[in-house]
Simulated scan of single mutants.
Amino acid sequence: MTTAYDWTGRIGDVWAEEWRRTDRSFTNLTPYLNAAILSVAIPQTRKIIDIGCGAGATSLATAQAIPTAQITGIDLSPTLIEIAKHRAKTSSNASFECADITAAAPNHAPIDLYVSRHGVMFFADPVAAFTTLAEAAAPDATLVFTCFADRAANRWATEIITATGGNADAPASTAPGPFAFADPTYVASILEKSDWHVASPERVEFAYRVGDGADPVADAVDYFSRIGPAASAIRDAAPEERERHIARLTQVCDRYRSGDTVEFPAAAWIWTARKSS
C-alpha cells in the first residue's frame, strides 16, 4: 500500500529525481489522455485541476491546448511541485500547489474539470475523496483520469515482480497503489457513490517505455531499480541476491528490446465522469 506519507517523503523524492523517465514511460498513453481531456472541454471550461500532477506533464499539455482556462496542478510531493513550477515558468495559465487534493479542492471551487494521469489510485478513502471533489465541482463539471488496468495485462509489472522474487499471481487488491483501480466495476461503484455519473471506461493497450538510447536495456534496468515493483526488492536484498535480481531483470528487459527502446505491453483505463445533477 502506498500512503500519503510515502509521496511527501522518499517515494515523492525518487519520482522527482526520475521525472523524465516516469514521463517517458507514459509516452504511448499520454496522447489518449490528452485527447480525452480535449473532447470534454467546452468554451465555458475555465478552471481545471490536475490531481496528483507529479512533475506537471498533463497540466502543461492541458494549459497549452486550452489557453482560455486556468490549470492548477496539485500534488503531495513538494519536490515534484518544485520541478513542475520550474517547467511552468513560461506558461501564463498553469500553476502548481503542494497540497492534499481533498483539502485543496474546496479552495478552488467551483471547478469545471478535473484531470489526472494515474494520480487517483492512492486515496485512503476513495468514496470520501471523490465526494469532496464533486462538492467542489461546478454543476456541469467533468472528471477525466487514467489508471492501470489489470496487473496481468501489464507485463512490466508481472515480469519484473517475478524476476525479483515476488509473486505476480498474488490476489488483486484495492489498497492504495498502482493497481487499486484495475477493476472497472469497483471504480464505477466508487464514482456513482460519490455523485459522479460514469460512462463505460475506454481500455487502452499501449507500450510502456522503460528504456531507450545507446544501451536501452541498461537504462531500463536502472529505471526499474529506482521506480516500480523491483526497486524495493533490489534495495533490500543482500548483495549476492541483489546481483541475481539484476541479472534476471536484465534478461527480462533484453527480451523486450526493439532497437534503441525497451517497451513492455501495458493496459490502462480512461475514465470520464460527469457530476450528477
Rank of each mutant, 00 (worst) to 15 (best):
M1Y: 07
Y5H: 11
G12S: 05
D23V: 02
Y32E: 09
V40H: 00
P43H: 06
A57L: 14
A61N: 15
I66M: 05
Q70W: 00
I71N: 00
D75P: 06
L80A: 13
I83G: 06
A84I: 09
H86Q: 15
H86R: 15
A88D: 04
S92H: 13
E97W: 07
A104W: 07
A104Y: 12
A105Y: 02
P106C: 05
H108G: 01
A109C: 03
L113G: 03
L113N: 01
L113M: 09
Y114P: 08
R117C: 11
M121K: 09
A124C: 01
A124T: 14
A134R: 02
E135A: 05
T146S: 15
C147Y: 01
W156T: 01
I161W: 04
N167C: 07
T174E: 05
G177K: 07
P178H: 02
V187A: 04
E192W: 00
V204K: 08
V204A: 00
A207L: 10
G211A: 08
P216G: 09
V217R: 15
V221F: 03
D222W: 08
F224M: 14
I227V: 14
I227R: 08
P229Q: 04
A231G: 09
A233M: 01
I234R: 08
A238Y: 04
P239Q: 05
P239N: 10
E241Q: 13
E243Q: 13
R255M: 03
E263S: 14
A266Q: 10
R274Q: 10
